[in-house]
Design a protein around this nucleic acid. Structure first.
Length: 483
RNA sequence: GGCUCCAUGGUCAAGUGGUUAAGACAUCGCCCUUUCACGGCGGUAACUCGGGUUCGAAUCCCGAUGGAGUCACCA
């Protein structure tokens, strides 16, 4: 009997979403939607100090823009709310469940202060490690009561045995067994009454009926503690899907802390939502066939989480750029123009046909900011060297170029029709009657009107956009330089 | 350092005992083209090492090595 799949994305509102989080959100979404299940959004705002103003809005916006629409969440009650953990704290949910554990002897009050905890610290390889010594587990009942009555600050800790092992099962990694001695008595409830991430996760995932817990590989090592919690409660464990890490080029885990790109950073850098989603989906997963370009809908159809990889993947900006270029080429012209226009305006202030200029760049860029530099010559003819007029393959040099430009000048002065077609007609007629090669004529012309060896579009396109007056001025300037 | 995970070209990645070890990005070359780009064609480039098991291992087992993650009143 197949249970209904329910997954959740449970971010903490601490800022922008980096791509690792985005991919976790995506996989959770795909796993649920592939089977027609539910996708929930739960806000894990249990750390008072790390709250960032507006972070929830960023999460909402990011999920909406990428199409990862949740079925239940803070704004969509599915009957298992609230979906914001701070509200669940107020409702007393975590305290209630913590007390159940205390009654069972699976958890205990701990009154140790910072100083005592500090003394438990050891430094190994430059890293601070604290292993709690179960000091408060052995407190006499009367002392606990007295402390509580006196209002002494406390935390609640999980009581893990020092012997034996704990085994949990991950869909991707199989059974993983860990010695219990490695599992320290983690804090369930903090002294401010808020739960820790770990405790809140277990309680909420259970209460919200989550069937598949999708999260990053960095949580693999804390999973056994969860198992102990589920067992302590007598709850059935969900399926775990620990996604492989996404790393930087140095194989280090992507993190905001290290200044790695967030989704919004990428958008600001000129990437397209669909391309980011598509690329990130392929980091750790591949379809049965060899396709690489997928819409979100296609991903929903094709995604099989059993094909998720186990090894970490390096985030390759190069390939993202390529993929982004593919998306830009496929992009709806109107949508393209909306994104392209601001980039065009960065370098063009003259009343030229900005649409035509933008269109020239559509197949030539990977990200939108690539637009500006190659089109700057439209605004103003750059200073250039006459050596540009020399091109071996086109069989042209300054002397030939001068002859050609002088030849064409009167003709172009007489011409009124500066449309692509008009220019093509008269110039190709000239080419024919002059007996010259197409390239030999067009090369100098393009150099004259653009001042650079490489341009988006050819001489016709450029002249059409520049218009008669400016085109002629640039050709005269070319003649002047060559004379 | 303990524990855990991982290991196919520079990167992503297919591959589940017998393949000329796919494909994509990047890179290089050629073609197309008035340049560039697009597009097309082609090249270089990989199973970490050592033991097993087997008629036969990239594929299964063990070990080594390497890398990563984690060891907070952060998530």
């Amino acid at each position: 009997m197949m249970q209904r799949i329910r997954t959740r994305y449970a971010p903490s509102p601490t800022g922008r979403m980096h791509v690792g989080n985005l991919r976790t959100a995506l996989y959770a979404y795909l796993i649920a939607k592939h089977e027609g299940g539910d996708y929930l959004l739960r806000i894990e705002d249990t750390d008072q100090e790390r709250q960032v103003e507006g972070a929830v809005e960023i999460i909402n916006r990011t999920l909406e823009k990428t199409g990862l629409i949740w079925d239940e969440g803070p704004d969509k009650d599915g009957g298992v709310g609230p979906y914001v953990q701070s509200e669940r704290v107020t409702a007393g949910i975590y305290m209630e469940y913590a007390k159940k554990l205390i009654e069972k002897g699976e958890a205990y009050y701990c009154f140790c202060d910072k100083e005592r905890l500090e003394s438990l610290k050891t430094v190994i390889d430059g890293k601070e490690i604290t292993v709690y010594d179960k000091h408060c587990l052995h407190l006499p009942k009367e002392e606990i009561e007295a402390n509580l009555a006196a209002g002494k600050p406390f935390v609640v800790r999980q009581n893990t045995p020092n012997e034996g092992t704990t085994t949990f099962t991950d869909v991707l990694y199989g059974d993983i067994t860990v010695p219990n001695a490695e599992l320290d008595d983690m804090i369930l409830l903090k002294s401010d009454g808020f739960p820790t991430y770990n405790f809140a996760n277990v309680v909420d995932d259970h209460l919200m009926g989550i069937s598949h817990v999708v999260r990053g590989n960095e949580y693999l090592s804390s999973a056994p503690k969860y198992t102990r919690l589920y067992q302590a409660f007598g709850w059935e464990e969900p399926q775990y899907v620990h996604c492989p890490l996404i790393t930087d080029e140095n194989k280090k885990k992507l993190s905001k802390r290290s200044g790695h790109s967030s989704y919004e950073d990428l958008v600001e850098q000129g990437f397209v939502d669909e391309a980011i989603v598509n690329y990130v989906a392929l980091l750790g997963w591949s379809p049965e066939d060899n396709n690489e370009i997928f819409s979100l809908q296609e991903l929903v159809e094709k995604f099989d989480y059993h094909r998720i990889n186990k090894s970490p993947a390096v985030f390759d900006m190069n390939k993202l750029r390529w993929m982004n270029g593919e998306y830009i080429k496929m992009m709806d012209p109107e949508k393209y123009y909306v994104r392209a226009l601001p980039e065009v305006k960065k370098v063009i202030t003259k009343p030229l046909d900005l649409k035509k200029i933008a269109d020239l760049m559509k197949t030539r860029i990977e990200v939108f900011p690539d637009i500006a530099e190659p089109i700057a010559f439209f605004e103003e003819l750059p200073a250039y060297d006459v050596s540009l007029y020399t091109h071996k393959k086109m069989k042209t040099d300054p002397e030939i170029s001068l002859a050609i430009l002088k030849d064409m000048l009167p003709m172009l002065e007489a011409q009124e029709d500066y449309s692509l077609e008009g220019l093509r007609a008269s110039i190709s007629a000239y080419i024919e009657q002059s007996g010259r090669k197409t390239g030999q004529v067009l090369w100098p012309l393009r150099i004259a009107v653009s001042g650079q060896a490489m341009t988006p579009g050819g001489a016709y396109e450029i002249m059409e956009i520049l218009g008669k007056e400016e085109s002629l001025a640039r050709i005269r300037k070319g003649i002047e330089k060559l004379s």
